[in-house]
Nucleic acid binder design. Sequence first.
DNA 1: TCTTAAATATGATTATTATCATATTTTATT
DNA 2: AATAAAATATGATAATAATCATATTTAAGA
Lengths: 143, 143
Amino acid sequence: MFSNSTKYAIKAVLYLAVNSSEEKKVVVNDMAGLINVPKAYIAKILQELSKKNLISSTRGPKGGFYLSEDNKKAKVYDIVIAMDEEQRMNSCLLSLKKCNIDNPCSLHHLAYNEKEAIIRKLNNTSLEELVEHIKTGKSVFPI
Amino acid sequence: MFSNSTKYAIKAVLYLAVNSSEEKKVVVNDMAGLINVPKAYIAKILQELSKKNLISSTRGPKGGFYLSEDNKKAKVYDIVIAMDEEQRMNSCLLSLKKCNIDNPCSLHHLAYNEKEAIIRKLNNTSLEELVEHIKTGKSVFPI
DNA sequence: TCTTAAATATGATTATTATCATATTTTATT
DNA sequence: AATAAAATATGATAATAATCATATTTAAGA
C-alpha cells in the first residue's frame, strides 16, 4: 500500500516521536540501526522530511534530528502526503480519471468507503496519539 | 494500490467478460485500443492470464481470447493474486513481519479492518457479477 | 580559530516495474 | 501442402523506485 520510502519515513518519525526532543537529539548513524533501515537511505528521507518541516534538526556537534512539540502534533497523513503518496492513496483502483459515486468504476463499490475510512483515520491521528498507544502497550513500535 | 499490470489485467478480463464468449473471440490487436493499454504490454499480460487458466484462448486464424463460462465465475481477487499482488494487499502497512491484533504495528488499528473488508469483497465478487453491474448501469466499464 | 561532528546537497548505482519487439508455434482456410 | 492469422515464448529497452556514496556546510568545543 505504501512505498518503502513512506514506510521508512513513518518509522523514522515515530522513532523520533518516542525517543527524541529538543534536548535529546538523535543522530542518523544511530537511528539507522535502531529502526533497521539502510543508513544512507534513511538519511536522505530525513533530509526530505526536515526540508518540509515535519521534523527538526540542527547541524554540527551535538546536533541531530528530533521532533519539536509542534512536529508531534502532525498527523500521520501529513507524512504520507509529504512522501508523495497522495496519488496512490486517493486514486481510483482502476485509474479511471473521474471515478466517483455518479460514475463509478467496476471496483468502486468494493473499496471506496474503506479507502476513505483509512485516509480519514490517517488524517485524524497525530503522532502524539501513536506515541501514547505505544507507551500504553496498545501497539508495538514497528522495527 | 494495484500495480499497472494488475489494473490492466482486470480491465482486460472485464473487457472479455463483457464482450467475448467461445463463439466470439477477441484479438489482442483489437483489444489494446479498446481498453487503452499498449498492445505489446497487454499481449504479455493476456499470455500470463492464459497460462494460469484465468482466460481462454485459441491460436491461428479465427483464434483469439475469450472467457469460458467457467472463467467468468472467477473472483476479482483471483486476478489480483495471479498478478502477484498478494504481498501488497495482505502485508502490514509498515512491513512488520508478524503484525496482528496481538502484536499490532502502530497503524494496525487505522487500516486493518478496512483492508480486510476490501480483500473480502474482492474475493466474494465474481467477474459475472461485475458484468451484471455494468449491464444494469450500476458501474461503468473502466477505460 | 581549528578541529570535529553533525546535517545538507547532490549525484551515482542498482533493482524493479513497465513497456516494446520479434521469432516460433499452432490452426483454419485455400 | 501452402498460406496466413492468430497466440506463445522469450528477451530487450526504458522508466521509476530503492539504495549507496561523497563533497559541502554548519556549529560546538578545545
